[in-house]
């Protein structure tokens, strides 16, 4: 993973609450066996009309949303399935950060492991962001704040290890593999609850 330290962009807003992973990338596209090139499928059934043309009512099809890397989404973004295709699709589509008052657990985990900033802000700050689409924000991962155009700041929490991995481009599998000795020792013990060795 490449380090992610700062993201500067205008915001695009998808105000709907509970935007689920089927809306982010419909299940029928999950027959892929790679993680690449999913951006064209991102929000597919919302973004395109039946004839394949862009849906003019989809907020991210508006000219002012073009090039926005920060998505402000309604509460409980990413609910539903565990498909990592959702953050893969968003990143390939050009979204580098999702700001929300509440983000579904599995999606948030998957996003952070791919360098997609899934950041939760307070309900009041979230409401303000929803009401101000298109503003320029700078997200500072090291300082854990979002800088507003007037110089004001929104402070956010990030799980310390996820932050460390983002800032340093840490490979989490590499980190886990460093615990080989502890894992091997753990495996020497019999299972705690199932008693196969009693046989």
């Amino acid at each position: 993973m490449k380090p992610v330290t700062r993201i500067h962009s205008r915001t695009a807003v998808l105000a709907d609450e509970n935007i689920d992973t089927d809306r982010i990338i419909p299940a029928r596209f999950l027959t892929t066996t790679t993680r690449d090139g999913l951006g064209k499928l991102c929000f597919h059934d919302w973004r395109y009309l039946a004839d394949g043309c862009d849906n003019p009512d989809f907020p991210l099809n508006q000219p002012q949303a073009s090039g926005c890397a920060i998505l402000v989404a309604g509460r409980n973004f990413g609910c539903g399935s565990s498909r990592e295709h959702a953050p893969w699709a968003l990143l390939d589509f050009g979204i580098q950060a999702v700001l929300c008052s509440e983000i579904a657990d599995i999606f948030r985990n998957n996003a952070l492991k791919n360098g997609l900033l899934a950041i939760m802000v307070s309900a009041a700050e979230h409401q303000w962001l929803l009401e101000h689409p298109g503003i320029e924000l700078s997200i500072d991962v090291r300082g854990q704040f979002i800088e507003l155009p007037d110089g004001g700041r929104i402070v956010f929490q990030l799980e310390p290890f996820a932050r460390h991995c983002l800032l340093n481009g840490v490979d989490q599998l590499g980190y886990l593999l460093q615990h080989e000795t502890a894992i091997a020792q753990y495996e020497q013990q019999p299972d705690h609850f199932t008693q196969e060795q009693a046989a």
Binding site: R35, S81, S82, R83, E84, P87, I106, N109, N110, K113, N114, E159, F161, Q172, L173, Y175, L176, L177, H179, E180, I183, E187
Partner: peptide, 19 residues
């Protein structure tokens, strides 16, 4: 449930990083 990155973690180490 876990994502595919974590599926890889379990395959390689039989472990997950969890809070």
């Amino acid at each position: 449930g876990i994502g595919t990155t974590e599926v890889g973690h379990v395959m390689a180490t039989q472990c997950l990083l969890q809070r």
